[in-house]
Amino acid sequence: MTSPDNILLHLPEDEEQQVREVFARLEQRGFPAQRQTPHITVTFSPAMDEGVVKRAAELLPPVIPARFRRVGTVVFGTKRKQTVAWLLETSDELEIAARDIGARNPDGRGPRWTPHLTMGLRLPREIVPDYIRALGEETSPHLKELTAARAALWRPRSQELTVLAGGAPS
């Protein structure tokens, strides 16, 4: 399976490092390694439509950087492999922009957007309750907010990152 093109929001280096440290502590406890770069997905597609990219380049610069507040933990998936994520809330302005971008993506979910940061990707369903418990234990109570410092289009097939808003790639 080829990974899709994504319009992503990236964290600043210090916050990304904090998330990676949580991944490392969970791995030390025997859970599956998490190698993904911490990010918040705006929308994805097998091949991102250029009109969607253009709209994202118009709408995202005025709202980036953006603050996100952790408001819970969610589980995505109904089959054997599931994903655990932090559920996030952000400003109305970014929410409206993300929904507009998603609505223009013919391969997307329409105007629906569930902002989240994946903390456990493709986990066996049986370990999800223990993973969620350990995630709570290994996450600093001070890590309540995250920042979207940069918006970018990521095309995994060509390994091409195009910054749409915010800082240059790190």
Rank of each mutant, 00 (worst) to 15 (best):
M48W: 04
T41A: 08
T41N: 03
Q36H: 10
P38C: 10
T37M: 05
E27T: 12
P61C: 09
G77K: 13
E27A: 15
F31D: 08
V75H: 02
M48Y: 02
P61G: 04
Q34A: 09
R29W: 04
V42L: 10
M48Q: 12
D49Q: 11
R80H: 10
P38Y: 01
E50F: 01
Q34C: 10
R69C: 07
Q34F: 08
L59V: 02
G72F: 00
I40D: 00
T73Q: 11
A57V: 00
P61Q: 08
R29G: 12
Q34N: 09
P38H: 02
T43P: 07
R69S: 14
V52L: 12
E27Y: 05
V53F: 04
F76M: 15
R70N: 05
G72A: 05
A56M: 05
T37I: 13
V71H: 05
P46G: 09
Q28Y: 04
K54L: 06
P32M: 05
G30T: 09
F68Y: 12
Q36L: 13
F44S: 03
Q34M: 14
E27F: 08
K54H: 08
P61T: 11
R80C: 13
A33H: 14
P32Q: 11
P38F: 03
V74T: 14
V74I: 12
L26S: 06
P46H: 07
G30P: 06
Q28R: 13
P61F: 00
V53W: 02
T37R: 13
E50A: 11
E58V: 10
E58N: 08
V42A: 08
F44V: 03
T73S: 06
R70L: 11
K79N: 04
T37Q: 07
T73F: 00
V42K: 03
I40T: 07
T41G: 06
H39T: 06
R67V: 10
T43D: 09
Q28D: 15
R67N: 13
A57T: 02
A33T: 14
V42D: 04
Q36K: 06
I64D: 02
A56F: 01
T73N: 03
Q28L: 14
P61K: 05
L26F: 01
V53H: 02
R69L: 10
V42F: 04
P61I: 04
A47W: 02
V75F: 01
F44T: 10
F76I: 10
V75L: 03
E50S: 10
M48P: 13
P46Y: 07
R67D: 14
G30C: 07
T73D: 01
T41V: 01
T43M: 01
T37E: 11
S45T: 03
F76A: 15
M48T: 12
F31P: 10
V53R: 05
I64W: 00
R80Y: 13
V71Y: 03
P32N: 13
A57P: 03
F44D: 13
A56R: 02
E58F: 03
R69W: 03
S45D: 11
P32R: 08
P38I: 09
R80V: 15
A66R: 08
G51Q: 07
D49V: 08
R35D: 09
I64V: 15
T73P: 01
S45W: 01
G30N: 08
P65F: 06
L26C: 08
E58A: 12
V53Y: 04
V75T: 15
V52M: 04
D49W: 00
T43S: 01
V53M: 04
V71G: 11
T43G: 06
F44N: 13
P62Q: 14
L59D: 00
H39Q: 09
A47F: 00
P65L: 03
